[in-house]
Design a protein around this nucleic acid. Structure first.
Lengths: 229, 229
DNA sequence: GCAAATTAATGATTTATTCAAG
DNA sequence: CTTGAATAAATCATTAATTTGC
């Protein structure tokens, strides 16, 4: 297993602890530079790559959602069973079969416009910003969407476009070699879209030099029944 | 539109033609180095980045599948309607509501073990290999799965795992800055997984120096009713 | 003809699902 | 069984076609 190097990364205890702390602190979809920084920091405790950090957050987020969904579904089933006993065939909300677009809000993550490079592409990481808070709303909205059924040959000619304000903050921007080679057109791309939205940006370092516990206290204040989000 | 550069890439006619030709030739999930090469080549016809090529293949493949699915669904519906007329309430295959795992075989793509780098990360592109053929089987299997309805709180404990031979050839490998920094363990990673499968590897350049039409002729020989796959 | 208004395509992201190592 | 890794599906958002009224 470990002699010649396993095929997949196994986080050390300390790496895991730090990752979970970062997750608890509100980080869900770290930007490229954040991943860069986290990776560099965690590499002190053992072998690790950027993609490991990337996948870890992705999986952790997804499986948290999954866990929550299961729990809420159980509760719903219980409730429905109780209702079935009290009144017959009424109020059968067709939650189980309705198409529900998954376009609910997600916790806004970093939108540093400087992160227009490859995922984990080495770059000059200067500061590290991310928005804290706003996670409570996310968790609760997630719970509302417990079941989803999509039949494929639908989704045509019903452009009800909710037109919600969404924050597509292109984390993980790209830019590659082949792209920067042989440019024929040369437009200077100043101030592209710049979705000047609300949400006061809260800047705080991932790994402050002074103390580490501040991260946790800063965001772990949302509603959470038993540590899931 | 074009003066200051749009926010999203719009392929030029020539770029599109080449991409479609490559697609027709069998390329579905190009490896990092393939993307690199394609990007470099296409950048001659206009601004383009590696991610554009990546997304283009991803979307094109997905929408081909989708198109095929819709077509087969229509045919199925017609057949079922006819059957409804002949015999009543018999043979009601519950195709519409059954969960169907999407783990059917996909066309094997390049598995060059040397592509253990970032997506589109600049690297020394030496040769360019990809497997041709094997697309016919793919198309037919895809058609068998016409409708999919997944209720989320399911998908547990029914690991019917088809256990088909799949080729997860980690294209788009990663490796980052932060990953290669401060290595504590050092295993030499020789001959990683190397799924020694069937399918004789057919090596041919994407953009040969001599002629370009050879690509097309080399693989465009599968069954195809009307140009979809 | 020609813009504004709709609709259709499609580029770009995120989420869901799956596979398999440990 | 847990979870790292990878891919496919769903979704969002922008651009191009297309239509419509003038």
């Amino acid at each position: 297993m470990s002699p010649t190097g396993s095929s997949r990364w196994s986080p050390t205890t300390e790496q895991l602890m730090i990752l979970e702390e970062l997750y608890r602190s509100g980080i869900r979809t770290p930007s490229a530079s954040q991943i860069q920084q986290i990776t560099t920091h965690l590499s002190f405790y053992g072998r690790i790559e950027g993609k490991n950090v990337f996948y870890w957050f992705q999986n952790h987020k997804a499986r948290d959602r999954q866990k929550l969904r299961r729990k809420l579904n159980k509760q719903l089933q219980l409730q429905q069973q109780l209702q079935l006993h009290s009144d017959h065939h009424f109020n059968h909300q067709d939650f189980g079969n309705r198409f529900v677009p998954s376009a609910f809000g997600y916790p806004p993550s970093c939108s540093s416009p400087a992160s227009k490079q490859l995922p984990f592409y080495a770059t000059t990481t200067t500061g590290l910003f991310f928005q804290g808070g706003g996670v409570a709303a996310y968790a609760s909205q997630e719970g509302a969407m417990n079941c989803k059924c999509s039949v494929h040959h639908k989704s045509e000619s019903l452009l009800e476009k909710n037109k919600e304000i969404r924050f597509f903050n292109n984390n993980y921007g790209w830019t590659l070699g082949g792209g920067d080679v042989n440019h024929h057109h040369h437009h200077h791309q100043e101030s592209p879209c710049c979705t000047t939205t609300n949400q006061p940006l809260q800047t705080l370092d991932l790994f402050p030099v002074t103390s580490t516990t501040r991260i946790k206290e800063d965001c772990t204040k949302a509603l959470m029944s038993d540590h899931q989000w």
